[in-house]
Each structure stands twice: as structure tokens, then as C-alpha cells.
Computed example of a mutant assay.
Amino acid sequence: MSDKVDSWRVTLPCTRAEAEAIDAADDLVIDAVLMTTEEVEDDRERWRLDAYVEEEPDAALLAALAALVPSAAGIAPVVTPLGAEDWVAMSQAGLEPIREGRFVVHTSAHPVAAPPGGRAFLIDAGQAFGTGHHATTSGCLAMLDGMADRAFANVIDLGTGTGLLAFAARHLWPAATITATDIDPAAILVTRDNAADNGIDALHLIVADGALSDDIAARAPYDLVIANILAGPLISMAPEVAAIAAPGATIVLAGLLDTQRDQVVAAFAACGCTLERVDRRGDWTILRLAAGTTRYVPTRPIDPKGRDGWALDL
């Protein structure tokens, strides 16, 4: 290692539940690349949080990181100076390729070839959620892969993150119109760059809060709606998601814990949707629903700040 300190790593122990909460969060305001790793296979208590930063971490950053992992209370973080290596690549060194059906997802640190008849996607960890390494994203890949024999013409990926699920849809249904949206402009920029890296073209990229956008409405109705977000937003967004779905459309939902499944299903059932399939992965659940036989019309205007009055029991 060079004597020149180019970046820093902060390491703290954590539990699997804490790691999954960190991976799923889309509102963290910590200026660091965060990586969670299972240290002992199938041990819910033996996980690790690594945070990579370009400047020496100060007390405020250390406190913010400690707040993410309450189980590590009283344990001093390990702060390691790093040399001039590419520190983002180092943060991805432990992200082994993920294989789901015909798809394999890998980082720059672990390049792999596509499986026969399948597709490999290069998705590096960075500013957006959705590298395929979280159970919700990999579960969505599996759900989409299982629908390869269906025909979809107009697909939307709400909360696209890195763009991975939109890319998978493009591979499975090459003639379809594919729209990818995210509330975070940075995620749309990441999706654009990832699309270029993977040779994906003809995507409509939209910065939007949920499904409330004139651009989204103009392209509706969609016969496949994908929303890998979180349970609370999914519940509040149920009327607007149902409203952009074509009659009988397929709706894939993820980002929810199994304990939150009934509340999410109830919110969409109130909008005419019925549950078709459940894929449970650890504590996380992926749902496939069918929209009603007639297009849903919200019973009242949807306020983007308040939306509907669904409450989420944690």
C-alpha cells in the first residue's frame, strides 16, 4: 500500500436485520459508500458494516454510522486509512456475482460471462439502491424471469434505483416500451450510465415522485408495473399505481418485510388488485398481483404529500 492516505474505511459489527434496513433505506444522508457483509453464513447476529469515505471521518460521521447499528453500542468503530487504490472498487470487492434464472449480476471487481441464453449485467455499488445483492432486488429478478413466457408491451419500473429491473425487462421483452422512474435525480443519472455500460437502449427515464407525473400518465396504461420500494410508500401509492395499470395488468411489488405483507396486499385489494404469487426470501417478500378487470379510477384526488390514509404497523 502507498504511504499516501487516499481514503478511509470505518467498520462496525451489525446484525442481519440492521444490514437489511441499511440496504433498503433510500433516505440516508451519510456521505459514504456503505457495504454490509455476512461474516458467518446463516448467523443473523454476525454481519459487518463498512463505510468508505474520502476524508478522515469526524465525530459526527462516526456517530451517524453508529446510529445505524444499535447492536454495536459500546463498540468502538475500527477506522482504517487506505492507500491510493480505487476505494469504490475496494468497497465492492466482497460483492460476488448474483445468479437468478437467466440473469447474472456482477460488479467490476467480479466480471462474469452471461449464462447460456441469459444475460449478464454490470452493476457497481454506488449512489443508488439495486445492485441485485439485496433479497428484494434478486427476488424481483427471479419473479420477472418466471414470467418470460408472458407477453408485455408497456412496462414501468417505479423507483428504479440502478435500473437493473428495467434492464431485465428490456432483455425479456425486447419489443416492449420500457419506462424507468425514480424520485432521486441521482438514481436516474446512475441508471442512464448503467444502461450505457450494459448496452441497454430505448428506455424512457423519468424523475418522478411515485406514479404522479404527467410523463408517466401520458404513457399509461402499463401492462407490467414493477415497484421495488418500501412497504410504507407502496401502501400509500396503491391508488396511483393501480390507476396507471391496464385492466388485468401484472404488478410486482417488493421492498416489504413478510410481516408487512398483509397490509400491502390489503391496500392494493382496495384498488381492485388480487394476489397471485408470493416469493419469500428470508424476512423479505416479493408479491405478484393482478390488476382488476376494469381500469381503476381513484375515488378522490391523490395528494403527493399525503396520498392515501394507509397506516403501516411496524
Rank of each mutant, 00 (worst) to 15 (best):
V155D: 05
I188W: 09
T15Y: 00
L257P: 00
R300V: 10
C140E: 13
W8A: 12
G232T: 11
E56G: 12
V265K: 08
D215F: 06
M90T: 02
D124Y: 07
A151M: 10
T259I: 12
A243L: 08
R261P: 14
D23I: 15
A208R: 04
E39C: 15
V252Y: 03
V278G: 13
E56S: 10
D182P: 04
Q260P: 12
L212C: 07
A51E: 05
H106N: 06
G130W: 04
V264L: 01
V207M: 04
G272R: 00
L82F: 12
T285W: 14
L314C: 10
I235Q: 11
I226C: 10
T177D: 04
A169Q: 07
D209T: 06
L212P: 08
D197H: 14
G94K: 06
T250F: 11
T15I: 00
G272W: 04
V207D: 03
M35Q: 10
D31K: 13
Q127S: 14
R280T: 11
A168E: 12
A113L: 11
S91V: 01
R44P: 06
A153R: 07
A202Y: 09
L275F: 13
L253C: 02
L224P: 01
T299R: 06
P70W: 05
R44V: 14
A187I: 03
I183E: 00
L257Y: 15
V265G: 01
P116N: 11
D27G: 06
A202C: 08
M90E: 12
P233H: 04
E39H: 15
S138G: 14
D262I: 07
L122V: 14
A242I: 02
V112Y: 11
P298L: 05
S108L: 15
T162P: 08
S138D: 01
A114R: 13
A76N: 05
P239H: 08
A245K: 00
A291W: 01
L256Q: 13
A151P: 02
D262W: 09
L158K: 00
E96T: 15
A151H: 09
A128G: 08
L49D: 02
V104Q: 03
L62N: 09
A19F: 03
G94H: 06
H110A: 01
R48N: 01
